[in-house]
């Protein structure tokens, strides 16, 4: 079966800054692919590029985005509009501001069905109500008449999810969908996304900086650093045997309750993310890496072993010196 979404060598630039430097991604039906990394690593830009929603000033420089049997990287805006909200949908980090404060939930949901399905008002309202019920919103009929400010953050995110799923898309892109929510609400939303993915056979691209979220929901993980995917593996494998020094650093930086002692410093990765301009060569992590050698300033080829892919001079099975 061919993947729902296949991204090849995607490159995005903001002026001289190379924000995304040639990433590859493939997501199959019923699969949750987590793109994880710290702020500014290019993960959100990659997600927006897939939806062709890059902000002004960002340029989709190169790459192929295969979706629904065509390369949408160069598709005209008019054709993209037909796909967005219908075959591919997106939800965002800020459920507070992502809904229009001036319109009711019902109006913002039904317009999707009217646009893509040409549905009449009554049919659209009925469908919207059913979808709200499906994502676990209580009293869905009443919610349709409410405005965003009358809903809690968790409810708003459920509304966003319901709206995204109205046309039964093949691909759902979720950009930090739980980051702005309370921890208890986060769990509910993640569970809902997992259920929906299973029931509807969605392909889901989930962007997050939170490895806790990854552990909960991911089937496949791609770790991004400075615009590149530095490691890619099935979730279980990545947590069991991370191979890129950056991934190891990230995992070590997670404080584990019970193991962290009071007064002891939490593990961090020293240094800062470099600015990667066009023409940057070699491993972007080398200045922060304890294993870097002169080789790391040269272009690094990806190593592949089964489903595990990493971009480092170190071979599988390397051990840190004790």
């Amino acid at each position: 079966m061919s993947p729902v979404l296949e991204v090849r060598d995607l490159r995005v630039r903001f002026g001289a800054m190379a924000a995304v430097r040639g990433i590859d991604l493939a997501i199959e039906r019923g699969q949750t692919h987590c793109l994880v990394g710290e702020s500014g690593c290019g993960k959100s830009v990659s997600a927006l590029a897939v939806m062709r929603l890059l902000p002004r000033g960002a340029k989709l420089e190169a790459g192929a985005i295969r979706f629904a049997d065509e390369d949408i990287a160069r598709l005209p805006e008019r054709a993209m509009r037909r796909l967005r909200g219908d075959r591919m949908a997106m939800i965002f980090q800020e459920p507070m501001t992502s809904l229009n404060p001036a319109y009711t939930i019902g109006s913002q949901m039904t317009e999707v069905l009217r646009t893509h399905r040409g549905m009449g008002r009554a049919a659209a309202v009925e469908r919207a109500e059913a979808m709200l019920a499906r994502v676990g919103v209580s009293a869905p009929g009443m919610r349709l008449g409410q405005y965003p400010h009358q809903l809690s953050g968790g409810l708003r995110q459920r509304v966003m999810i319901a709206t995204a799923l109205l046309c039964e898309p093949d691909l759902l892109v979720a950009d930090e969908p739980t980051t702005a929510l309370d921890v208890t609400v986060q769990v509910g939303i993640l569970k809902l996304l997992a259920d929906l993915k299973r029931d509807l056979g969605l392909a889901m691209l989930l962007i997050t900086h939170d490895l806790g979220v990854v552990a909960r929901i991911a089937d496949v993980v791609s770790v991004m650093y400075a615009g590149e995917i530095v490691e890619h593996a099935p979730a279980g494998q990545l947590f069991a045997e991370p191979l890129h020094p950056y991934t190891r650093g990230l995992l070590r930086a997670i404080p584990v309750p019970g193991k962290v002692k009071r007064g002891e410093k939490l593990a961090t990765i020293p240094g800062i993310v470099p600015r990667t301009e066009a023409g940057f060569r070699g491993c972007a992590f080398r200045d922060r890496c304890g294993f870097a050698t002169y080789e790391c300033a040269e272009p690094i080829a990806a190593r592949v072993e089964g489903a595990h892919r990493w971009r480092c001079r170190l071979e599988a099975g390397w051990r840190e010196a004790a």
Binding site: L53, R84, G85, M90, T97, N100, E111, V112, T115, T163
Partner: peptide
């Protein structure tokens, strides 16, 4: 604003 980005993500027309 974020809600305009949402509107674009929903595939609405430019006029809308």
């Amino acid at each position: 604003a974020d809600y305009v980005r949402t509107a674009r993500a929903k595939g609405l027309s430019r006029a809308s």
